[in-house]
Design a protein around this nucleic acid. Sequence first.
DNA 1: GAGTGGTCTAGACCACTGC
DNA 2: CAGTGGTCTAGACCACTCG
Lengths: 242, 242
Amino acid sequence: MAQESPTFSPLYRQIKTLIVQGLENGEWRPGEAIPSESDLAVRFNVSQGTVRKAIDEMAAENLVVRRQGKGTYVATHSDPRAFFRFLRLVPLSGEVEPSISVPLECWRAKAGPEAAKTLQINIGEPIIIVRRLLQFSGKPVVVDEIYLPGDVFTGLTLDVLKDYQGSLYSLFESRFGVRMIHAEERIRAVAADRVSADLLGVAEGAPLLSVERVSLTYGDKPVEWRRGLYCTAEHCYLNELS
Amino acid sequence: MAQESPTFSPLYRQIKTLIVQGLENGEWRPGEAIPSESDLAVRFNVSQGTVRKAIDEMAAENLVVRRQGKGTYVATHSDPRAFFRFLRLVPLSGEVEPSISVPLECWRAKAGPEAAKTLQINIGEPIIIVRRLLQFSGKPVVVDEIYLPGDVFTGLTLDVLKDYQGSLYSLFESRFGVRMIHAEERIRAVAADRVSADLLGVAEGAPLLSVERVSLTYGDKPVEWRRGLYCTAEHCYLNELS
DNA sequence: GAGTGGTCTAGACCACTGC
DNA sequence: CAGTGGTCTAGACCACTCG
């Protein structure tokens, strides 16, 4: 017999979708607590265990953070613990150190075929391009070129970038309401071009890590495309396989 | 008041430990099914829900694979689905293609300070070093140098490697009972040395990805240290961030 | 239809936090 | 102490696989 319920979705997943919608709609903002499991159970008219399973999945996806005895909180990029979730660069030896972002340029352009395809917008639609440097203990280690859809990031200027203290994603979250929740990186080794070599203080042609990232927000909608060149003379990209 | 139970471990985690021990001891072998949840519940004298939660964690850690309606199976590197779990190399364009391992050398040596530290053995203990090439559609893309603790892999020779069809980890699992369940990779960009350049068919000094991996088995015991040089002219290292 | 994993419930109790 | 997440149980029922 044919499959009876091709679109079967368990109750806890429907509940999860509802709670995620609450996050999307801003019903609960980053850093805030969502209602308790029993409150949500009453609200959605299901058992507490079902709400729990929904939140379990959300916690596994880093959408939300549980704190025993306190509550469940909406994940935020302002949380220092989230800093190294997307930047997997660690020193070859020594302690993990915080990075400083140095914005270089910020200009507007129209999306070319590649940017349009990656950001899932139409060719010719406005985009914003940011170039910035990442420094560890004063030394430049990464140069990033970041492509953003212009309609979402209206008002983003070099001055805004320079004024902000904290990570880029933290700015995107608090200023533009855009939360990166997932990303895919493609890593290659390339030879440093003249400009990047100068910025990173290495010889032209030196090997660099090219890290191309597409960041997604709710519903797997792409909202950032960036290409970083990482100098791995004193740092390395750390990845856990499991 | 001071914390009352610093070593508190929930029941389901104790059950999990017991089941994992069954895997370690070979009570259930890779590819086989473990007993049903209700059987295990009876055996350990807990409720089925508690067994379920234990297995949930094991499934999340890829120790075990659930198949609805059939049972729960011990994960195996022979399963094609596990092939790309540790090799995150995909073509820049086109379909994912299977890789072929070409063993080049296999010799015995004594562990130096670095190998000893990484493999957590004593300096001077026997190790085995393997060099091999990885080819995609006939072209060499990766050259690996692999360090293994000699006492675990006794009997490993170049002929054994050449005779075996399938992945290295599949061989380690079936021939030596060693299961890699976790790994950590450190990625850098380096310039190709003369030998590697020749093997990979690139110019000396061409940028290559250096991927250093430590693989761990049960109890986070390191059992493999390898360094791979990846040519990323037509492939890239793909990584999901979440 | 029997057996397995997957879902859902209701209720009890434990561990942690903060007032 | 009240409120929150975390654990554990027992039982019912659903979805899937296979003989």
